[in-house]
Design a protein around this nucleic acid. Structure first.
Lengths: 249, 249
DNA sequence: AAAAAATTGTAACGGTTTGTAACGGCGCAC
DNA sequence: GTGCGCCGTTACAAACCGTTACAATTTTTT
């Protein structure tokens, strides 16, 4: 199961093409009490910002495709999401560049993680006082565990944004569950809810779907965390499900 | 009664091949109110962890034989014991690295002991406050005898934290009892409470469940201590039950 | 449209949990 | 002590569930 912490401090998005840095930062910052999502390049940022309430963005200056500076500048057009920029040690003008895009702070690589931490906290402290503008984006999104289930686009994304390939009926089943957390659903109910069939004779199909789904979304399918069996009853989706509500600007 | 949970400071294990550092840390941290055990290399760690209830591990990155990083990683497989890593100042280490293994914090040598102290306290504070309650559930935990019954996660743990494998209905039965200590429950009541069945003809099933449950939780099932028989009446759960909001460990 | 791939359905095996019956022990009333 | 009824437990049967393997079906590709 996921050691997901309730976000006491905030939800950070780290964007860096260096997977190692991403992983290390994620681990470090998670242990410091943040919730951390990572992305390898700028293309996913919009999507992630649409689905999650991100408190602060940690952005590498050098990125494949669109560089961090432009991203930051574009972001600033529509929101004032706090940004801490990662730059490469060296040219002094990095400093200027970093702030040029509207970043709230910057730090040069290689950096001392504690210093980064201090800067993150400082920025959050400063910006939390001021109200935050809304990001664009809509679409019904359900969040549970480390997953995002986008009901409009009919796709499931893990925390770091990678898509999981669900078949149509797998998606339906998962959506059915996620819309009724903590509610025991019998096989008959599930059959009805997912495809309008009532009273089919052999219904082990549901078992199969559940089994297949578990293997795709449970960390340990042998000891399922999200979809649990109720002997003689059916299945329950046991996870806190958050509906993604965007505060209106 | 028994083990007072309010360990004033905690028991630390320092692992470093430099004897001088070990001695120094031991002296310093002991004076700060910690209990301190030291080890020169990784081979003894398992043994020590088995023998003592260690609250936090201070681990040198560079060790003869297996290095600290691997040790930390292996440790993480099976426990979430807080770890503070000692790294050597300079070059790559100034970046994270130490966190690769999942350490909770790190500090570069040579370090200021007071900084180490601060980091230890911070880690302990963090990990003690939010002890992985993580998952859903608000953490309703009932404690009785040497047991902890987690109603949210539906798990039963013995004192040392090992899980006992209860079937679903066994859990329900136990929970039913534990929520009504000192109250005699007839078989009919139990049948009703555990699964909403009323007036089933042959109900020796409850006897069976009780028997099976006793074998899992009673020290001597022949002379049950927790679930006692009331001849002609049913069963009683005779144990002081403490409601505990914070699941430990 | 044929072929290939993916999805879904069905059956069957194995493991676990629960239900039932039956035997034997034990307490209690007389 | 004896008899009766309650209880614990053993042994077995039934129900239930997860999964594998494969067949049927649908979708996609060529």
């Amino acid at each position: 199961m996921g050691t997901s912490a309730n976000a006491p401090s905030g939800h950070l998005l780290v964007v860096d093409d260096d997977q190692e840095i991403c992983a290390l930062l994620k681990r470090f910052l998670t242990r410091q009490g943040f919730r951390v999502t990572t992305a390898a390049d700028g293309t996913e940022i919009e999507q992630i910002l649409a689905d999650w309430k991100i408190d602060l963005l940690i952005l590498d200056l050098m990125l494949p495709g669109k560089d961090g500076l432009s991203i930051c500048r574009e972001l600033r057009e529509k929101s004032n999401l706090p940004v801490v920029m990662l730059t490469v040690m060296g040219e002094e003008n990095d400093r200027i560049k970093g702030f040029d895009g509207g970043a709230d702070d910057y730090i040069a690589k290689p950096f001392n993680p504690h210093e980064l931490l201090a800067r993150i906290r400082a920025v959050l402290r400063r910006t939390r006082l001021a109200p935050q503008a809304a990001n664009a984006g809509d679409g019904r999104v359900l969040r549970f565990g480390t997953w995002r289930l986008n009901l409009s686009l009919r796709r499931l994304q893990s925390e770091n944004g990678t898509l999981v390939d669900l078949s149509a009926s797998e998606f339906d089943l998962l959506a059915t569950f996620a819309e009724r957390p903590q509610q025991v659903l019998s096989r008959d109910q599930l059959l009805d809810l997912t495809r309008g069939q009532v009273e089919q004779p052999f219904d082990r199909k549901i078992d199969m779907q559940v089994s297949r789904l578990r293997h795709k979304i449970e960390e340990d399918p042998k000891h399922p965390d999200l979809i649990q069996t109720v002997r003689g009853g059916g299945y329950v989706f046991t996870a806190k499900v958050e509906h993604n509500e965007k505060p209106a600007a």
